[in-house]
Design a protein around this nucleic acid. Structure first.
Length: 396
DNA sequence: AACTCGTGGCA
DNA sequence: TTGCCAAGAGT
């Protein structure tokens, strides 16, 4: 056995892949708010917000979340409507409700703290295998892998994994590499190094291999296969759907409806409407929907415009209408729907799906300008999340 | 084991 | 414009 003292230079130079990554991270890491002090609560919230969401998209949400909910107790005590309103526009709204469920468990059963235990974390709502590992490593620097899509892509190229991403074989290979490369005691930086490298250098499209600190060990690059790794699973066909919704105005208030507590956009509010029955015009279709679901016969409709918006599985054209009805009288409402008349000035308070928020913006704009086009206008996307103010619109 | 669950950035 | 993609979890 050769004494370390005889080989001082090898001690100073990174000589493993993990050390190359750690050195790269030390020089190139992104400055992100939850990386200041690594407060477990902040790391947890950041990880939930980042699920299927890019840093650039969530950053503004994260900042205002920490102003409104600076700690676990504040989120545990908050009304669910407040939580959803702060999440409006981020998507996957079960994440927000699961944060609150988990916060309440932390307060009641876990001493009001983020648990420092993988299995306990894993048992909390919204925390799966990845997120539990991410919190253990990033918040507590404990030795757990956190192999997200970035790490998966890096490992798939590094080891030239030919299995399709999402397959069990792929996940097993990634998991094995993650455990194998994890430098004990440095898991916080290592896991984040993989994420930053994946989002800054080892990009899904056109990776910047010349900037990569481990390109010399990348099997896919050596074979010229970086564009083929990871192998993507088959994609599904996108379906076109026509929907319609109505801004019903009566005595300065607008009728909104709360969505059910399960399924798509649970517990968000919406402008009543829905899928346009096939073969009908949007205008006629939404009249049918209102009559069937609300027992309201709509008066003359004015177009507010058309919204094009897409989900993973389908592309939607949402037709928005305005109805100034002096006296609509709801008959029997089906399915015990939760309906509410909200003052126009309070429309910013409930949480709406993005597309419906765009309709409300167009409606308020119409009130300001009173302009009307001949044909439906395209309603644009908002650039930033709508600022939040006081909640509680229920008694307005 | 496949689906479902959203949205905005980006080329 | 269209399609792809993103720090996944729950069922």
């Amino acid at each position: 056995m050769v004494s370390k003292d005889i080989l001082p230079n090898r001690e100073k130079e990174p000589d493993t892949l993990s050390e190359e990554l750690l050195a790269w991270f030390a020089a190139n890491s992104r400055k992100l708010p939850w990386r200041i002090g690594y407060i477990p609560y902040q790391v947890w919230i950041s990880e939930i917000m980042l699920q299927q969401t890019q840093v650039k998209t969530m950053l503004a949400y994260y900042d205002r979340w920490m102003v409104r909910f600076p700690d676990i107790a504040s989120i545990a005590q908050a009304p669910e409507d407040d939580v959803l309103r702060l999440w409006e526009g981020l998507g996957y709204y079960a994440r927000a409700r699961n944060i609150q469920k988990a916060a309440r468990i932390m307060v009641s059963d876990l001493g009001g703290k983020v648990p420092r235990d993988f299995d306990v974390l894993r048992s909390l709502p919204g925390i799966g295998r990845y997120t539990a590992g991410a919190i253990m490593s990033i918040a507590f620097n404990a030795d757990y892998p956190a192999a997200d899509a970035n790490a998966g892509r890096i490992f798939a190229r590094l080891g030239d994994i030919a299995h399709p991403s999402g397959s069990k074989e792929f996940c097993d290979s990634v998991d094995r590499m993650a455990w194998q490369l994890l430098p004990r005691g440095r898991s916080r930086d290592f896991n984040q190094a993989l994420m930053d490298l994946g989002s800054l250098v080892c990009l899904a499209k056109e990776p910047l291999c010349v900037q990569c600190p481990i390109s010399g060990r990348c099997e896919a690059l050596y074979k010229g296969f970086t564009g083929l790794r990871p192998v993507k699973a088959g994609k599904k066909a996108v379906i076109q759907i026509a929907r319609a919704a109505v801004v019903m105005v009566r005595k300065g208030k607008v009728l909104i409806r709360r969505r059910p507590g399960t399924g798509l956009m649970a517990h968000l509010w919406e402008l009543p409407g829905g899928d346009v029955p096939s073969g009908m015009s949007p205008q006629k279709g939404v009249g049918r929907l209102w009559e069937d679901e609300l027992g309201i016969r709509l008066g003359p409709l004015e177009s507010l415009g058309v919204i094009k918006h897409s989900h993973t599985a389908f592309r939607v054209e949402l037709h928005a209408f305005l109805c100034n009805d002096p006296n609509p009288l709801p008959r029997a409402v089906k399915n015990a729907q939760q309906l509410q008349w909200v003052a126009i000035a309070e429309l910013e308070k409930p949480a709406f799906p993005s597309a419906h928020r765009r309709i409300i913006r167009a409606f308020l704009e119409r009130l300001r300008c009173a302009s009307q086009a001949d044909s439906p206008v395209a309603i644009p996307k908002a650039k930033k999340p709508l600022p939040v103010s006081t909640q509680d619109f229920s008694n307005a």
